[in-house]
Simulated scan of single mutants.
Amino acid sequence: MAKLIIVGAGGHGRVVLDIVLAQSQWEDIVFVDQNPQLFGQKIKNIPVIGNIEKLPGLKEAGYTDCIIAIGDNQARAQMAEQAKKAGLKFINAIHPSALISVTVRMGVNNVIAAGSIVNTDVQIGSNVIINTGAIVEHDNIIEDNVHISPGARLAGKVQVGRGAHVGIGATVIQNIKIGAEAVIGAGAVVISDVLPRSTVVGVPARQLEKRR
């Protein structure tokens, strides 16, 4: 069995730890984190051994597999680049209770959390989080570095652009395009396309001032 590094020992990191323990594919697991206050601590008996600079040495010690467990899209993408430079192999952390169609195609370094549903012919990039209880319906395209928050619901043929964030409990109707790095507020109901780098909130969702 392989050895696994989880990058990120915060709240999302603990969720990812639960997922990989349920997968039962790794003989040993360690955390690395950028917060020095966590160094030397244990989370559910898993040690936090240092920061991202530990990755090359860990690879030499036989820790070949890696998952980035950071909720922030930009930070997750940046850490993935560091892990890639260290020559680590990304895994997908998929909870056994998640329902994923056999026709789904996905990249690597993805987290599919407990109770989520990903239906037929969905395409998922890399560095994506499909969080607890989220529903991604048929023919969605989820690009790299996206976070679909807990309880969010995406109807059929939705396209979510690179780095976008769909907030907790949000609903997106069918055939909608969400632009790159857009933010969908918690509980929003999206009934029209969302521009890149914009934020929409409310029912129905309305755009706030576009971010530069």
Rank of each mutant, 00 (worst) to 15 (best):
I5S: 13
I68V: 09
R14F: 06
S97N: 02
D65A: 12
N109I: 14
I46R: 10
Q74F: 15
I100M: 00
P36W: 02
F31M: 04
D18L: 09
K85A: 10
Q82C: 07
Q34C: 05
K42N: 02
L99N: 08
G13R: 08
H95K: 06
Q74E: 01
A86Q: 06
I52F: 12
A9I: 13
A61G: 13
H95G: 14
V104E: 05
I100F: 01
A9S: 14
L58H: 08
V32I: 10
R14D: 04
D33Y: 07
I124A: 03
A98T: 07
D121F: 09
I6Q: 05
E27K: 10
N35I: 01
N127P: 00
I100C: 01
G57N: 13
L21R: 15
P96I: 12
A69R: 08
H12N: 05
L55H: 04
V48K: 07
C66D: 10
N45V: 08
S126R: 00
V102L: 11
I124F: 10
V118Q: 01
G125H: 00
S97H: 02
H12K: 06
V15C: 08
I5A: 11
V16E: 12
A93Y: 11
V30E: 09
W26G: 08
G115D: 00
V128W: 15
D121I: 11
H95Y: 06
P56I: 15
R105D: 13
F39Y: 13
L99K: 15
A114N: 11
G87C: 14
V111K: 03
G107N: 03
